Computed example of a mutant assay.
Amino acid sequence: MNLLGNIIWLLFGGLAVAVEYFVSGLLLCLTIIGIPFGFQAFKMGLLALFPFGQTSVASEQGSGCLCVLMNILWFFLGGIWIALTHLCFGLLLCITIIGIPFGLQHFKLMRIAFTPFGREIVSTRP
Rank of each mutant, 00 (worst) to 15 (best):
W81R: 06
F12L: 13
M70Q: 04
L47K: 03
L26E: 08
L3D: 06
P36H: 13
F114R: 05
A113K: 08
T115H: 02
R125L: 15
L4Y: 07
P126D: 06
G90Q: 03
A18G: 04
V23R: 08
L77C: 14
H86C: 11
V17D: 11
L4D: 01
F114W: 15
L93Q: 06
L15E: 06
P101A: 05
M1R: 11
V122M: 08
G118L: 01
C88R: 07
T31Y: 04
F117E: 00
L92Y: 04
M44P: 04
Q40K: 15
I32Y: 08
F107K: 09
G64I: 10
S63H: 12
S123N: 09
T85S: 13
G78A: 07
L27G: 06
I95C: 11
A83W: 13
G90D: 05
F89E: 06
P36Q: 10
I100H: 09
C88P: 00
W9N: 04
L87M: 13
C94D: 06
N2G: 09
L47W: 03
G14R: 00
L11K: 12
L27R: 14
L87E: 08
M110H: 01
V23S: 05
T96V: 09
F114G: 01
M1G: 13
G64P: 02
E20V: 07
W9Q: 02
P51G: 08
R119I: 01
F75K: 01
Q105W: 03
K108A: 14
G64H: 06
F52Y: 04
L26F: 12
K108T: 10
L109G: 07
L30C: 14
N71Y: 07
I112A: 02
S59N: 11
C94L: 10
A113G: 10
P116D: 02
F75I: 11
M1W: 10
T31V: 13
Y21H: 15
M1H: 12
G90Y: 04
I7H: 03
I82W: 11
L3R: 07
G62E: 01
F114I: 15
C94R: 04
V23L: 09
C88K: 12
A41S: 15
I7D: 09
L3H: 08
T85G: 12
L109E: 00
P36V: 06
L30R: 07
